[in-house]
Design a binder for these strands. Structure first.
Lengths: 136, 136
DNA sequence: TTTTGAAATGCAACACTGTTGCATCTAAGT
DNA sequence: ACTTAGATGCAACAGTGTTGCATTTCAAAA
């Protein structure tokens, strides 16, 4: 599926900015911040438009959001099985303490947890940190 | 150990602000943001001083920091076995999607994970969300 | 192909978290 | 009571993220 088809399939318009953002996200093996995306764009675009596009992507199920260790949002393309507001992002994330990059780890298995009485679990996120391949 | 002793024990001065912050943190069953702390203070204090105190607490091993779902820092008292830069905060955290409150869950067991080749693990954080007792 | 309405963008302004520099004050040991 | 390193207050700043509003542009229908 092309990026254009992907956008249309989720009810979004295929603008230059959005096609560019998807291109960058698809080309990356890790989750990217809005700053990295802005820096990588081959098109001029306003910060606000990038934020709005990323929010639209997230809501539509095109990307998912991860927080890096300092609380800023990173975005990565979703797997094929995400829909509107229905994310299947139940995989672990690894954050490198050296470069700060955030990787999605689809291979790592998530634990099943039992919560104290009264708490109702919706989702669990396993956040790992350490040193990545490039930083060793 | 009194809050005064606790501070001295970690090489920090027992000022009004810091004693107040510790009082609030000890009285709470969950992690608090700087905003909640500022609102709860019985003493006038500058935002900056609160941030600096919390940073000093964290570095000394008096409190640990958790990010809530939107990336803002929450703070909670550490267990007894934390020292300078040596946190023992390897427990799960639960964030309520209703009220946004963050709870430390000492009871939940952390999984052992195996990373892809090249990644070196330092710490793992299990972040859970759902609905808390009060919000059901 | 042209029209058209909704979606997307750009710009300005704002709120919030968090930090730094510097002058002043205070806790705590002498 | 002195002294000084540690703590505070104030002003200013950087970064993320949002909102309102006018303008542009995509995509579907005429």
């Amino acid at each position: 599926m092309t990026n254009q088809e992907l956008l249309h399939h989720h009810g979004l318009r295929a603008t230059n900015l959005r096609l560019e953002l998807l291109r960058l996200l698809r080309a990356s093996d890790r989750a990217l911040t809005h700053q990295e995306l802005e820096a990588g764009l081959k098109v001029e675009a306003d910060r606000v438009s990038i934020f709005r596009s990323l929010n639209a992507f997230e809501e539509a199920g095109v990307v998912h959001r991860v927080l890096d260790g300092r609380g800023t949002s990173c975005f990565a393309r979703c797997g094929t099985d995400c829909g509107h507001g229905d994310h299947n992002d139940a995989h672990a994330h690894f954050r490198c303490n050296g470069c700060g990059h955030v990787y999605c780890l689809d291979a790592v298995e998530l634990p099943s947890v039992s919560l104290p009485r009264g708490f109702k679990l919706a989702k669990s996120h396993l956040e790992l940190d350490g040193t990545c391949k490039a930083c060793r």
